Simulated scan of single mutants.
Amino acid sequence: MSKHEEITNRRYPIPPPPRRKVDPLLMLKDNTKITTIAGPMVRYSKLPFRQLVRQYHCDIVYTPMILAREFVRNGHARISDFSTCQLDTPLIVQVGVNNVSDLLKFVEMVAPFVDAVGINCGCPIKEQIREGIGCALIYNEELLIEMVKEVKLKWKDQIRLETKIRIHDDWDRSLKLCVGLCEVGVDWITIHGRTRTTRSSQPVNLDAIKYIIEGIRKAGFEDIPIVANGDCFTMKDFKKIAEYTKCQGVMAVRGLLNNPALFSGYDICPWSCIENFWYWVIEFGGIPYQLIQHHFYCMLENMNLKKKLLNEMMEIKSLVQLMDWFDDNFELKRYNNIGFGQSIEIPYRIKD
């Protein structure tokens, strides 16, 4: 059976089966493999995209960051910020939060619908930092540790709790923070190997991640999985990160936005991703047209689509017109068509 036949055979049935809880911690503790993870992407890791990456060997998937303050107080925010379905598992909902009270309320609200909660301690956006959210938390170690402690005291193993941090310039400070989180019961830690001020164009610091992981193990926390994040764009990167840092999982973010089939071993996004994403967009809806358009742009750019066509696509103003544009330029198969979701190369339509 070819790789594409395997992926096609794993397409989800309609109607979907009942949602089942999956414990992501058990996946991370499976020592027979390194767990593949799709990290949180502001706006972009919505339900249709999450379902797409799951089709291509992604074990665990995150939501975009949701602000706890708005979520627990505003019903409209809950409707717009969070959607899921029976197939959306294992699912980690990431939260931006700066106090214990909002975090406890948030966890209580989302617990029935997710498999874990992740605290965002890595967002470097200045507005978030001013509010004590994201990267601000790695400089407010006592508060972060207290938040983890209170959630685990109340929920124990009924809900899994993760923290995603960036590194300090002083690696020992990061190590001390991670050990403190382990002591109060965090289920796993994700380490993004950049500081608050490191640009994404600069290489991720795998030495720092390796140093922190080794320090956590020496402190006696061998059973708490550590996930490495940063610069995973191909499976070659994935293997390099895993082997060098000795982590239990590797998280990709930008790499998956450009190539959702990264974890299936494709160095370049296959055309099947385009057809499958169209299916999930129509099936679920719920995301603005501009985001759908940009998802297609990222994938098609990765596939080296002709620049003229890329520019042409970005001038289109509606979903219906976008579908017509795809049909005019490509052989775009639908779900019930023979060969749907199997093509690798761009199937240009030959015009008369």
Score class of each variant (00 low, 15 high):
Val61Gly: 02
Tyr56Asp: 01
Tyr44Gly: 05
Gly39Asn: 04
Lys33Asp: 05
Gly39Pro: 03
Gln51Ile: 15
Thr63Gln: 09
Leu28Tyr: 03
Gln55Asp: 08
Leu28Arg: 07
Leu25Ala: 09
Tyr56Phe: 07
Asp59Gln: 04
Leu28His: 09
Pro40Gln: 05
Ser45Val: 04
Lys46Trp: 15
Pro24Arg: 06
Asn31Gln: 11
Thr36Pro: 06
Ser45Cys: 08
His57Met: 09
Gln51Tyr: 12
Ile37Gln: 03
Leu25Ile: 11
Leu26Asn: 07
His57Phe: 10
Cys58Ala: 08
Leu28Ser: 04
Leu52Pro: 04
Val53Glu: 05
Lys46Phe: 15
Thr63Leu: 08
Gln55Asn: 13
Pro24Ala: 13
Val53Asp: 02
Thr36Arg: 14
Phe49Gln: 06
Gln51Phe: 14
Lys29Ile: 04
Val61Asp: 04
Asn31Met: 12
Val53Ala: 14
Asp30Cys: 11
Ile60Tyr: 00
Met41Leu: 12
Thr36Met: 09
Met41Arg: 03
Lys33Arg: 14
Thr35Lys: 11
Thr35Met: 10
Thr36Cys: 11
Met27Thr: 13
Gln51Val: 15
Ile37Ala: 02
Thr32Phe: 09
Thr36Trp: 10
Thr63Glu: 00
Gln51Thr: 15
Leu47Arg: 15
Lys33Pro: 05
Phe49Cys: 01
Leu47Pro: 12
Gly39Cys: 04
Leu52Ser: 06
Val61Arg: 04
Val61Leu: 04
Ile37Tyr: 06
Ile60Phe: 00
Arg54Asn: 02
